[in-house]
Computed example of a mutant assay.
Amino acid sequence: MNFCETAYASVIARIDAARQAAAAATAALVAVSKTQPAAAVRALAACGQRAFGENYVQEAIAKQAELADLPLEWHLIGPLQSNKCREAAQHFDWLQSLDRAMLVAPLARHRPPARAPLNVLVQVNIDDEASKSGCAPGDVAALAAAVAAEPRLRLRGLMAIPAPAPDPDQRRAAFRRMRALFDSLRAEHAGVDTLSMGMSDDLELAIAEGATMVRVGTALFGPRDRDPG
């Protein structure tokens, strides 16, 4: 197997082992393809991966055009600027990074009627980091309600990027706080089913604490100056 095939098999094995250990029904994989060329996405798609995460709208649109022959699912995982709502609503299947109410109406307005509603995750700044996007935990309920009120949007759950910490217990605590928020949200809104948290170095910990979706880049593609295929 080449690097791409080996890396993909390794990540899938890690997810499956973590899911079984946690008795979790599902733990979906989003391959973080930001800064990766379309060829790298195509190579990973050949291994069976379908969901890909991008940080930048324009970079993703160009990549999508090159890969239009493939049945891929595109997730916007980076901060969304208000002037990019139209393109985000038109070109993505999921928005994982909704962090403020002012984006809700334009996203709904620009979602093409011919497409399914845009799947939306509310991003939470769970560790209150000044450098991170995301709403405060106390604002989740109101922002989620705004999404749920729009027929062209579909509230699916929450996303977070906890602060990096060498102590696993610190990350575990953040994941547990996210799980508590997720459980509260799920009790209020039918259809909430996705808790996106965990990356290359902590996906097992995230799944153990309730993640239903993990976002993995480095473990799949390797260092960004390496040919991942």
Rank of each mutant, 00 (worst) to 15 (best):
K34E: 10
A7L: 04
D93A: 10
P168G: 12
R152P: 01
L103R: 04
L118Q: 08
A105V: 13
D93C: 04
G138R: 04
D139G: 06
S10N: 15
E204G: 10
A27W: 00
S200Q: 06
L80W: 05
R109V: 14
F52M: 09
A24I: 06
N55I: 08
L153S: 02
A148C: 12
A18E: 02
A101G: 12
A144F: 07
P113I: 13
E73A: 12
A45Q: 09
K34R: 13
V122P: 07
R111F: 01
T26I: 13
E129S: 13
F3Y: 14
F221N: 09
V214T: 02
L205T: 12
F52T: 04
L67E: 07
V30F: 05
L107T: 08
C4Y: 04
A13E: 14
A24S: 15
D128E: 15
G191L: 06
A116E: 15
A22H: 00
D69N: 12
V140C: 06
C85F: 02
A39C: 10
M199Q: 10
A22F: 01
M199D: 00
A62D: 15
F221V: 14
A141N: 11
A173C: 11
L44V: 11
L203I: 05
Q170P: 00
P112F: 08
I12F: 05
Q20T: 14
H189C: 07
D93V: 08
I61L: 15
S200I: 03
A46L: 06
D99M: 02
P37N: 13
A142S: 15
N119Y: 02
M1E: 15
V216A: 11
G157N: 02
L44P: 11
R152D: 09
L70E: 12
S200E: 08
G229Y: 05
A136G: 11
I126Q: 02
C135Q: 01
D183H: 11
D139P: 03
A206H: 02
D201C: 09
A22N: 10
A65T: 15
T212E: 10
L158H: 07
G78Q: 04
A142H: 08
V57R: 02
D193V: 09
H75E: 05
Q170I: 12
Y56K: 14
A24W: 05
P223D: 14
A145L: 03
M1C: 13
I161G: 00
I77L: 09
S200H: 07
A114T: 15
A180H: 14
V57C: 06
V122H: 00
Y8L: 05
N119S: 15
A27D: 05
A18Q: 11
L118A: 02
A174D: 03
A206S: 09
E73D: 14
P164W: 07
A101T: 14
A68T: 07
A23R: 13
V122N: 00
A149W: 06
